[in-house]
């Protein structure tokens, strides 16, 4: 695709503009998706913790820990949830999903607290742990650990999808701009060619330029003007026909 010199700068300008839009949109989108999704995962996990906490009350009061275990088993693996444990009001572990055992760092921590904390568990990875009290804390608490690596992988995948889309729009935009510029520059190229042919003072193939001469736009007007100029011997004496152009 040949681009006229006249429009090369325009094309470069368009690319620069699209690039700027693409990059700034990507940056904004990455930030928005990153913080939004992380908050959403955290919020979902808190919601799950609240759901389990609310569902656990009767089960704990009925002292049926196998049903409690069955309940939490159904949540593990959902939305980046890596582990769940439930403690009673004195911090005893009533149910959990750890294999091969409860990590020492969790045993050593104050499990009666329900603040959101970041944990590094040896051999398991980095986690954000949310918690929800059961019966306002008097019956214990539900703790849910989200794998940071898994969450960030999901966020990166979402960001990747956004950037991918922006990149596609960017390239389609550039190709469209080049095509449009090329489309717009074609009559000018033809006009230039026509003017050069006329300047040679040789018989011009009018059929070749028929479409140009029939155009209703500025290019057609200019072409017809050039044709007219070519028919006068002295362009300074417009309106005085000189008969046929000299051969």
């Amino acid at each position: 695709m040949k681009i006229t010199k006249l429009f090369q700068k325009t094309v470069f300008g368009i690319i620069a503009l699209f690039g700027l839009i693409g990059i700034s949109t990507s940056v904004l989108s990455i930030n928005a998706v990153d913080s939004h999704l992380f908050r959403e995962y955290e919020s979902n996990s808190k919601g799950n913790a609240r759901t389990i906490a609310n569902s656990s009350v009767d089960i704990i009061l009925n002292r049926d820990l196998s049903t409690l275990q069955s309940l939490i088993d159904q949540f593990v693996g959902n939305e980046g949830i890596s582990y769940i444990y439930i403690t009673n009001e004195s911090g005893e572990f009533l149910a959990h999903t750890f294999v091969p055992g409860i990590p020492q760092s969790i045993i050593d921590s104050d499990v009666t607290k329900t603040d959101t904390v970041q944990r590094t568990i040896r051999g398991m990875g980095d986690f954000v742990e949310v918690a929800s009290p059961i019966l306002a804390g008097v019956a214990g608490a539900v703790h849910i650990g989200m794998d940071l690596k898994s969450v960030s992988m999901k966020i990166q995948a979402a960001i990747g999808a956004q950037v991918y889309l922006i990149a596609i729009v960017f390239f389609i935009g550039i190709f469209a701009a080049i095509w449009f510029v090329n489309f717009a520059s074609k009559p000018i190229e033809m006009l230039q060619s026509y003017a050069v042919d006329l300047a040679k003072h040789e018989p011009v193939d009018q059929e070749k330029y028929r479409k140009l001469l029939e155009r209703k736009d500025e290019a057609g007007d200019l072409a017809r003007l050039y044709q007219y100029f070519s028919t006068v011997s002295d362009p300074n004496k417009l309106g005085e026909p000189s008969g046929t152009p000299s051969a």
Partner: peptide, 8 residues
């Protein structure tokens, strides 16, 4: 076993 049976 890390499930309802083990917990029971």
């Amino acid at each position: 076993q890390a499930d309802a049976y083990g917990r029971s």
